[in-house]
Structures are given as C-alpha cells and as structure tokens.
C-alpha cells in the first residue's frame, strides 16, 4: 500500500481469439496509465473501446496478453491486490435467492470483514445507498435501480481503498444518480480512489478529477478534467443587469483593446440539475402542505 499510485498499468495489451480459426481480436493495445490515489478517475470510451476489458484484467478476471498492472503496488489479479478493491460490474446480476441484507453480508464475509464488524459495516453500507428499508426483500424482486444500489453496497461494504464502478448509474433515475454521485464524492473525501466508467459524460465531468479516453483499445487522451475542457484562448464573463447600452459600450471597449466578443448568451444549468432542484422544491412543498393540514 506504499505506492504513489492506486493503479499502474504499463504496456497492457489484450488479444481475444474468436471463432474456430482463432482470429485475433485486439481489445486493448499497449495501454500505459497511472491513476493517482485519492482521485475520482473517469474511464471513458465508446462501446468496445476496451474499458471493461481493462477493468477485468485489473481484477484478475481475465489474463493480460502482455504488460503489467499493479494495484497499490501489488500485482493485479492476486487476492492481496483485490482485498483493497470494491467492484460493481456493468448490469450486475446477483444471487436472487438472498435478501439484500443477506447478499451484502455474504460479500462482506468473503471480503474478510471480521465477525465483530460485520453487522455495523453491512448496515452502514445499506444506509449509504438508501437500501435499509428494502434490505429484507429478496434480490429477485428488485428493480434495476435497486440492483445498482445494492451492487454499490456490496462494493463498498469492506471499506476498500479503491472502488471500481462500471456504469453505476445505468437504469438509475436522476435522483438516484445524484445520490450515487454524492456517495462517490464522500468516498473521495475519506481518501478513497474511485474509477468510474460511464457513458453519462455530464456526470463524469461533474465528479471526476481526471479522465482517460479509450478508442479501439488505445488511449487517446488522459489528463485533469479542468485542463482538458478549458479553452485557454477564450474567457467567459458572467454579468448581471446588462442593458443594451452597456453591452454596446463593452463591445466597443473590447474591440478598441484588440479583443473580440464572440457570444452573448444566458448561462444554463444542466437538465439533470434542474430536475433534481424542482423535485426537491416539490417535495418540500408537499411536506409543508401535509404539516399545514395537520
């Protein structure tokens, strides 16, 4: 656990053999990536870009063709490396015969949570993902969103240093997605490292410190989100009470100083933010109505 990076990937290549003739399909090609500790790291790319394959190699679920991967300095794929990791796969499928609580207890036990910590950690994980009320129900009766949340609970129940989440908000409504986002931020505050694979770029932009973009198995961009998105040659001024006269004056002042006004527009918030805000207002109004009726 004394490595500078949570994950170090060096020259990783993965070939799959397909069909009877064993035609080679290269899923990941010469990938080198270092993921710093205590960051939320976005791993992005279109379908088939090699994200899930890379994650599976890190977890020892499939072997690499060439290259090395380390998790906190331990060779990836070893039980020692996995003891620091929590993983939520894409579209998770869990034991349908267990209740949510039994499921999280089972994963906590195999992850090595001691008997005297078991109840506490299970209940904390269930509460964190807001599944305490539904924890007695069988997993087979859960909706897609509930499956994602119970999946997140099993990933964090043993308090891992690194949490790998593959599409954690798929099938989750915007409120649930926002709640998951808050959980990830809270984990970062507690010193954890989070790797997030998602197609919801808005969420990635909001949560992640750094991103890597893969395409056809190759790394095409890696860096801090702020650095990657900033347009250094342009700046944005946000102004209140801008009259037509003031605007003309500002435009001419800019032009006289060699600058050019490119666009005047109203600032926007994201649709997701609007949705969450409106629902919060609506819920508080309903609460007020109920208390007034009483």
């Amino acid at each position: 656990m004394n490595s500078e990076y949570a994950i170090e990937i060096k020259g990783l290549t993965k070939d799959f053999r397909t069909g009877l003739r064993g035609v080679k399909l290269r899923a990941v090609e010469d990938l080198t990536l270092n993921i710093p500790r205590n960051t939320i790291y976005g791993l992005l790319g279109p379908n088939g870009s090699g994200k899930s394959t890379t994650l599976k190699i890190l977890l020892g679920l499939i072997p690499a063709t060439t290259g090395t991967c380390l998790i906190f300095g331990n060779p990836a794929g070893t039980a020692k490396a996995r003891s620091h990791v929590g993983f939520l796969p894409e579209a998770p499928y869990f034991y349908r015969h267990l209740s949510g609580r039994e499921l999280v207890r089972f994963y906590a036990r195999v992850a090595g949570v001691s008997r005297n910590q078991l109840d506490k950690q299970v209940e904390e994980a269930l509460a964190l993902v807001n599944m305490t009320e539904a924890a007695a129900r069988r997993v087979g009766t859960y909706s897609k969103g509930m499956l994602q949340r119970i999946g997140l609970a099993q990933a964090i129940v043993h308090d891992p240093q690194l949490v790998i989440l593959d599409e954690p908000t798929a099938g989750v409504d915007p409120l649930g997605a926002a709640a998951i986002g808050e959980i990830l931020l809270a984990m970062k505050k507690r010193g954890k490292t989070v790797i997030l694979c998602s197609h919801l770029l808005g969420q990635v932009e909001e949560l992640c410190d750094r991103v890597a973009i893969l395409n056809k198995g190759k790394l095409i961009l890696e860096g801090a989100v702020e650095e990657a998105l900033a347009r250094r040659e342009q700046q944005v001024l946000t102004v209140e009470k801008l009259s037509d006269e003031t605007r003309l004056a500002v435009t001419s002042a800019l032009e006289s100083n060699g600058a050019k006004l490119v666009e005047i527009a109203h600032p926007r918030i994201s649709l997701e933010k609007l949705f969450v805000e409106r629902l919060a207002i609506s819920s508080s109004e309903k609460k007020d109505e109920v208390s007034n009726d009483r």
Binding site: L61, R82, Y93, F94, V110
Partner: peptide, 14 residues
C-alpha cells in the same frame, strides 16, 4: 453464465 461470479471473484477469493 449469469455473471454472478464477476462480483464474487473480484473479491479476494482465489
């Protein structure tokens, strides 16, 4: 086949 093994084998299980 159902991929429940994914989550189990991602834990420190040999």
């Amino acid at each position: 086949d159902n991929r429940t093994a994914l989550t189990l084998l991602a834990k420190p299980v040999r």
